[in-house]
Amino acid sequence: MELLIFYPLAGLCVIFALGVVFNKNPIGSAMSLIAMMLGLAGIFVLQQAHFIAILQIIIYAGAIMVLFMFVIMLLNLKGDDAVWKKREKNTLLTVLTGLLIAGVLYKVLEITSAGEFDSPAHVLETFGTVREVGTILFTEFVLPFEVASILLLVAMIGAVVLAKSKVD
């Protein structure tokens, strides 16, 4: 049953991720990225992480992608990237990255096929709800939470300063 939901969602995610990379038009890439985010939200729901799934839709598919759209339309980039080509210079780098990731993946598969990870743990019905995650966020992880707010404040100020002044 879980497989029947998982495979279409995973396939959609991979197809749209490829669409982001191979689309010649930046607007098309952004649309593919939104579709991929929605597919990922479905996968998070499948993992009982309802709160994160909602955040995924609100923050990523909503806020971040709107920002991307704004910038793409502001810069009017239509057709700017029409003649993109593979970079020959990066071929060695690409192969090395692929080998590295394949090695990591092999190790991970070795560890996770140990049996402990064959089926999910028995979780309560409240697993991943806003109440559950919020309780942990405001008790055990309250310091990282506050630090994240400072990070967002600094990013906001940085964005305003960067977009306002001219680079000489």
Partner: peptide, 11 residues
């Protein structure tokens, strides 16, 4: 690694 458009790299 493959794209040269800064916005697509961000995506």
């Amino acid at each position: 690694l493959m794209r040269r458009n800064a916005i697509v790299v961000f995506m």
